[in-house]
Amino acid sequence: MRAVITIVGKDAVGILAKTANVCAAHNANIVDVTQTVMGDIFSMVMLADIEKMESTIGSLADDIEKVLEGQGLVSHVMHEDIFNAMHRI
């Protein structure tokens, strides 16, 4: 069971580190990260294994949002099943 975390917005120091910290605190294991910076727009997709996570995806989403608050960044945390459902026949 994996969750997809996306973050898009203004580039700044420590976005990845802060997000990774929250994942660690929730016991979510980061298995893949893709990130690009175009101009000053930061865009990242992170895949985390949430099999051993004790909290819910909702609370992980809340904590990521909290840690990035006020930085002009938009984050989404979604169960991977949604992408498999929408983009696979």
């Binding site: 996306t6 949604i82 992408f83 983009h87």
Partner: peptide, 16 residues
């Protein structure tokens, strides 16, 4: 396997 484009498309659909 998940791909970046599909993920961003879904996020854009919901966000914008």
């Amino acid at each position: 396997m998940l791909n970046m484009q599909d993920i961003m498309e879904t996020v854009q659909m919901i966000q914008d």
